[in-house]
């Protein structure tokens, strides 16, 4: 396998594996937020703020993987 092909494979694996965890996490955050909203709908604004914060934390992991993949690809 040539070095170029190996590099392409490394890019693909880094973003693919890096997206699994955050994907699961974001799904869990969303489902729990909807559950909480169903239990007490009057706390909607607080739940939304906390949810967006937690989403940003989970998403940041995927973004790290993306940054690594982009650096590998474009340098």
């Amino acid at each position: 396998m040539s070095a170029e092909a190996m590099k392409m494979l490394a890019i693909a694996i880094s973003i693919a594996v890096g997206a699994i965890g955050p994907g699961l996490g974001i799904g869990m955050i969303g489902s729990k937020a909807v559950e909480a909203l169903g239990r007490n709908p009057e706390a909607e604004s607080q739940i939304r703020t906390t949810m967006i914060l937690a989403l940003a934390f989970a998403e940041a992991i995927a973004i790290y993987a993306l940054v690594v993949a982009l650096i590998l690809k474009f340098t």
């Binding site: 973004i63 790290y64 940054v67 982009l70």
Partner: peptide, 16 residues
Amino acid sequence: LSFSFRLFGNIFAGEV
């Protein structure tokens, strides 16, 4: 690290 990478990654990924 997390502050700078989060903002950079999101905006740069959007541009790409």
